[in-house]
Simulated scan of single mutants.
Amino acid sequence: MTGGSAIEKGPRGNRLRPFVWGAAACLLLLPAVAMQWFPASEVNWTALDFIAMGVLLAILCGLYELGAWMSDNIAYRAGFGLAALTGFLTIWVNLAVGMLGDEDGTINLVFAGVLFIATAGALIAGLRPRGMALAMLAAAIAQLAAVGVALAMGGYDARELTFTAMFGLPWLASAALFRKAAADARGLPGAC
């Protein structure tokens, strides 16, 4: 890669593709299998639940494909995949149980802002590694700011706050991977 851009022309090998899509399919089938073995009170997914999860998994896998297509740099691909996975888990946790309080708690809308910051930052950066590193760092800061707001509001369990704050770690790891990809593009020896 040259010039700090992640975009390169030419074929891209993607050996992980069958594993990523296969894991997504297995994850989507897991509740259907669990509903056969556990009482309806424990696992009770509707058709809408399966559709929503299918759409989320398709978006996640599509983002993985985009990241793999954008660059053959391993750090870039890993950073992109980690950011996509963190966004997916943020949505999934919020829909299932809520990051803070229950899934209907208004505080959980703040995490849509975290996802907006990550997405808007990535688009503004043109998916280039240096800008992506800044966007993921901004998402990590937003994640921690959301926890700070919840802490100031009070009424949340320390375990909830800690778990939610820990969601900042994969955003930071993604930023570090993008930073390394940017350094690789400039020909610098391993930066991170």
Rank of each mutant, 00 (worst) to 15 (best):
G190V: 14
A122L: 07
A23M: 12
M132P: 05
G22K: 04
A24W: 04
A182L: 03
F116D: 08
G4S: 14
A152L: 15
P31F: 04
G101N: 02
A58N: 05
V20K: 01
T90E: 06
F88Y: 13
L137E: 01
L57D: 09
D157M: 10
L100M: 10
W92V: 06
I51Q: 08
D72G: 11
R128G: 05
A138E: 06
L169A: 14
C26D: 06
Y64E: 02
P11N: 08
L66C: 06
L144D: 11
M70Q: 12
L56E: 12
P31E: 06
D102G: 13
A120I: 14
G113I: 12
F50M: 06
G190R: 13
A150Q: 06
N94G: 10
W171D: 02
A75S: 15
P129D: 11
A183L: 09
A142D: 09
N94C: 02
I141G: 03
T164V: 15
P129G: 11
R77M: 06
P170C: 10
F80P: 00
L123P: 03
R15C: 02
T106Q: 07
T86K: 00
A176D: 00
R77L: 05
L188W: 11
T2V: 13
A40Q: 12
L89E: 02
V97A: 04
V149I: 15
N44P: 02
P11Q: 12
V55W: 07
P170V: 12
L30C: 10
W45S: 06
K9H: 14
N14T: 13
A135H: 09
G168M: 11
A173C: 11
A145S: 12
L95T: 04
G87L: 04
W37K: 09
A6L: 00
A176N: 04
W37V: 14
A146T: 08
P189S: 03
A84S: 10
C192I: 13
A25S: 09
M53W: 10
R130I: 11
F178R: 02
P18L: 10
L48E: 10
E8A: 13
D72F: 01
E160Q: 15
D49E: 10
M35W: 04
L30F: 13
F163A: 14
G131Y: 06
L85V: 14
C26F: 08
A78D: 04
A185S: 15
L89V: 05
